[in-house]
């Protein structure tokens, strides 16, 4: 009985199997194999630790992504809650405008950061006027941080708003009636309710920051993030094996972050960007 079902199961799973093989399994395997074909063989995977430039790049990227994620979560939670709680003229328009950065490629975001904090930027002109010194942030870690934050906030804020809308206002009122201060209401009622959304959007934010390339490329900062390092190895040094091994490591770090988020929130988290 069950045996007779096998051909049918095979047919049903075939499309998924083809897609999985073509777009995931084959390229990933190729990448992993290429990573081990350099002069050093499998040892090129250790270059991330042994080559100081690679190691610094990885640490910088991870720290930057963690910082961006933390900041994006804090800012988006406050703003998201405010936007859900307060309806005012134009609030709908404002919310839809918040999704704008999602449409911009990294190049545009990098360009905007240069306009804001570059050598001829707005911040520089203001600081020059005020303290007689041009503050230039665009080409440092700060420029990257601002750019990444800019495209991370919409992803987080929309998830937070969706979760906050489902929050029963009676929960907060119950806590208040029991004597809870506003701070206690936030810690004991609101944040626990938003937790799944915070974890999910935080994971997406982290994954996106780890892999972002366009912004870093445009800003051409003195700090190489991992995707930039991969680009350099690949195009300038023609170090295919090094580029491939770094790619695999970048993938693994991000995958672990998403896995952690999934096990923490118990729900599916999808990366994007």
């Amino acid at each position: 009985m069950i045996r007779r079902e096998y051909p049918r199961y095979f047919l049903l799973i075939l499309p998924a199997a083809i897609i999985f093989t073509t777009f995931f399994f084959v390229p990933m395997t190729r990448l992993a194999v290429v990573g081990a074909t350099g002069d050093e063989g499998v040892a090129s995977y250790l270059s991330i630790i042994q080559t100081p430039r690679h190691f610094e790049s990885m640490v910088a990227t991870v720290l930057l992504s963690i910082g961006v994620t933390a900041f994006a979560l804090v800012i988006s939670t406050i703003a998201g809650l405010f936007l859900v709680r307060n309806r005012f003229r134009g609030s709908e328009t404002l919310v839809s405008l918040l999704t704008f950065p999602l449409a911009f490629p990294g190049v545009v975001i990098g360009f905007m950061i240069i306009l804001l904090a570059g050598r001829q930027g707005l911040i520089g002109s203001i600081s020059n006027y005020l303290i007689g010194y041009k503050v230039v942030l665009a080409y440092s870690m700060w420029g990257l941080f601002l750019g990444y934050l800019y495209f991370s906030i919409p992803r987080v804020i929309l998830t937070i708003m969706a979760a906050a809308e489902k929050l029963d206002p009676a929960l907060e009122e119950a806590a208040q009636s029991l004597g809870a201060s506003s701070w206690e209401v936030i810690v004991d009622v609101i944040l626990p309710a938003l937790k799944p959304g915070l974890i999910a959007s935080g994971a997406i934010c982290f994954a996106t920051s780890m892999g972002a390339f366009g912004t870093a490329f445009t800003l051409a900062t003195n700090i190489d993030v991992l995707p930039m390092t991969i680009y350099t190895e690949f195009t300038l040094n023609a170090n295919f094996a090094g580029a491939a091994s770094l790619s695999i490591i970048l993938g693994i770090i991000t995958w672990i972050a998403l896995l952690l988020a999934r096990s923490l929130s118990g729900s599916t988290v999808a990366a994007s960007g």
């Binding site: 029963d168 009676a170 119950a174 009636s177 809870a180």
Partner: peptide, 20 residues
């Protein structure tokens, strides 16, 4: 006086129990 200082007990239609 705000609600948290009034020392009232409240029971809601939706129960409003803390799910966490």
């Amino acid at each position: 006086l705000p609600i948290e200082k009034r020392n009232v007990g409240m029971v809601f239609q939706s129960y409003a129990l803390f799910p966490n």
